[in-house]
Amino acid sequence: MIKNRHHTFACLLVILFGCALFYFGTDGFTAFTAETARVKELIADKPQFPNVTLEDSKGREYSISEFEGKYVFITFLYTSCTTVCPQLEMNMSKVYDKVPSKYIGKDIVFLSISFDPSRDDPATLEKYRGYFNSDGETWRMARIANKTELDALLKAFGVIVIPDEYGNFAHNSAFYIVDKKGRLLEVLDYKKTDEAAKRLTGILDMEAGE
């Protein structure tokens, strides 16, 4: 009987120790994956959008200060992508349509940034935006031609881009919200368009005092 009790106690101790390790290792059971942990760290750090030169589908060049005083809703893509990127941009379009029109352009702009600048020149981006009803103004598509600048932005925002031998890229995808001061505010699941639109509208409503 005593031996069985000792065995039961030992098992319970191992289970409790394992649960403790899992709790601390997953940041309180919330960071179940490396991606979740990465996003949590990004949101906590709130990195500044670096000083890079964007070139949009109209051939205009500017920095993020072009949108000073506005929130910026961002995706990262490449137009040759035939897997996640079309869905990412289609979902971007759904969020755009769900945000009250009174905020569009005035309080927030949408921005899709290509990480394949050698192929995604302004003409290519101009054609691509038409597939998703981007107007090129309140929702712009742009590239960062300078590789050093592009790499700095991808690193700052935790965007992982791995090229393969066929000219494609393995990459993570999300919605990014940058605040009026150019700092990363939120990273949202691009598959959950209703939640993203609700969160974005809530931020804008709060800003407007509604």
Score class of each variant (00 low, 15 high):
107 D>W: 08
126 E>K: 06
149 E>A: 05
123 A>H: 14
151 D>T: 04
124 T>R: 12
115 F>T: 08
111 L>P: 02
138 T>Q: 14
113 I>V: 09
101 S>C: 13
130 G>V: 11
136 G>D: 09
126 E>A: 12
112 S>N: 09
150 L>N: 05
146 N>T: 03
141 M>K: 08
126 E>R: 12
101 S>M: 13
124 T>V: 07
153 L>A: 00
142 A>R: 07
143 R>W: 00
114 S>C: 04
135 D>F: 02
123 A>R: 15
115 F>W: 10
124 T>C: 04
137 E>R: 11
132 F>T: 03
113 I>D: 04
111 L>T: 05
135 D>T: 00
107 D>A: 00
126 E>L: 13
105 G>L: 01
133 N>Y: 10
150 L>D: 05
116 D>N: 05
137 E>D: 14
100 P>S: 10
139 W>T: 01
136 G>I: 06
108 I>L: 15
123 A>T: 14
148 T>G: 12
149 E>K: 00
113 I>Y: 04
146 N>W: 08
102 K>N: 14
146 N>Q: 04
143 R>F: 05
102 K>D: 12
100 P>Y: 07
148 T>V: 09
154 L>S: 00
114 S>M: 01
123 A>C: 11
106 K>C: 05
125 L>K: 10
110 F>S: 04
108 I>T: 07
122 P>A: 03
126 E>D: 15
130 G>L: 09
150 L>S: 07
110 F>K: 00
103 Y>N: 05
147 K>H: 02
149 E>W: 08
106 K>L: 13
146 N>D: 11
105 G>T: 03
143 R>N: 14
151 D>P: 05
149 E>G: 01
110 F>D: 11
144 I>R: 04
101 S>D: 10
125 L>N: 10
119 R>M: 09
106 K>R: 15
153 L>Q: 05
103 Y>F: 15
116 D>Y: 09
121 D>S: 02
115 F>N: 06
119 R>C: 12
138 T>M: 09
105 G>V: 01
115 F>S: 01
148 T>W: 04
139 W>R: 10
149 E>T: 00
121 D>G: 03
128 Y>N: 05
126 E>N: 14
114 S>P: 11
138 T>P: 06
154 L>V: 04
127 K>S: 14
125 L>C: 04
106 K>G: 07
150 L>C: 05
123 A>E: 15
145 A>C: 01
129 R>N: 08
130 G>W: 02
105 G>F: 04
114 S>D: 13
121 D>Q: 00
102 K>Q: 12
103 Y>S: 13
127 K>A: 09
155 K>M: 10
113 I>T: 02
106 K>W: 14
106 K>D: 15
116 D>C: 11
109 V>H: 12
131 Y>I: 04
146 N>Y: 04
125 L>G: 07
133 N>I: 01
102 K>M: 12
153 L>W: 02
146 N>L: 02
104 I>N: 02
151 D>E: 09
115 F>R: 11
148 T>C: 02
150 L>K: 00
153 L>E: 06
134 S>K: 03
153 L>G: 01
131 Y>V: 07
111 L>W: 03
139 W>M: 01
131 Y>T: 06
146 N>F: 03
106 K>Y: 14
125 L>P: 14
130 G>P: 02
135 D>A: 11
121 D>T: 07
127 K>E: 12
